[in-house]
Computed example of a mutant assay.
Amino acid sequence: MDTSIKSSQRTLALFELFSLEQRPLTIKQITDALDIPQSSASVLTKSLVSLGYLEKNEQNRTYYPTLRVSLLGTWMRRQHQRAGQLPALLSEVARLTGESTILAMRNGMYSQYLIAQKGSSPTRAQVESGMLYPLACCSTGWCLLTLERKDVVGKIVRRTISEAKEDYWRETARNAIEQVQLTQSRGYAFSKGETMRGLGAIAILLPSMPGAYAMSAGCGGRIERVEAKKDLILDALNELARSVRTLKEREEHFLFS
């Protein structure tokens, strides 16, 4: 991988880590969380300190984002201020169902988790923001693929079978076209072990926010538990969709009035 690309990925991963942890971090904590060499973490943080994006506390040797980072997104927060309510809406789904809930968007041939809220069940699905799963092998991906032409879906499936890093995904991707068609006909997707063995998830396509990519929301855990809670999960996800639709209408009024 090109060194500049790797450096960019690590920089973004670091700020996503701060967003997740919401506290100062040491070099060791950064190294462990990002799974990078300590020397790389030291070079990265030193560079960001010199640029004014990180502040170093010399006393306890921790790092924390500066106000400069917060100001980077000020203009976007003004334009999409209501989208900031999405984490709270997802948390409500997790609270009602007891299962982990995620908001996903398409990233190439993958479904990427933008926001992840862990459920309250002791055996909940372990989800984190930034996770990537093949579109052809997960419920949020099947929802997103309903927006594509059949030939495009076919290309993604073939590419997944050829390139997926897990042999398991190469096998489960073979049923993706059928799953996408089923999702279109019933209005939701239901994975039962295609993404991870033993885990299932129900997902729906969400109304698109102005200026944003298409998004889907999913709720999942152990297959048998998700099957037992199917109606509850669908009710919670559909209520989420109604709330997002209301946000969309308000955002459109704000942007174009």
Rank of each mutant, 00 (worst) to 15 (best):
R77W: 02
Q112K: 14
N238W: 08
T123C: 08
K46S: 13
R225S: 09
R95V: 07
I102C: 14
S50E: 14
P24Q: 09
I30G: 07
R10S: 11
L234Q: 09
I115N: 02
M131W: 04
S185I: 09
E194F: 06
L20Q: 13
G187E: 01
R242S: 12
S47R: 12
G119I: 01
Q59M: 11
I202P: 13
N60P: 15
A241R: 05
R222Q: 10
R158K: 12
I27N: 06
I5E: 05
A176C: 15
Q22E: 15
T101C: 07
E251C: 10
I177A: 09
E16L: 14
A173Q: 04
G200M: 01
A104L: 09
L67C: 04
S19E: 15
M109Y: 00
L240S: 04
T195F: 02
T246C: 03
L54K: 10
Q181H: 09
L96C: 05
M215K: 12
E166Q: 15
E249T: 12
K248T: 15
S185R: 14
N57L: 10
Q9R: 10
L145A: 07
V49D: 04
A176R: 02
L48W: 04
L247D: 00
K46N: 11
E148L: 15
G193P: 01
V180M: 05
S111Y: 06
M131P: 06
N60K: 12
Y213M: 15
S216R: 00
P87G: 10
G141L: 04
R174L: 13
W142Y: 14
K155M: 12
V49A: 06
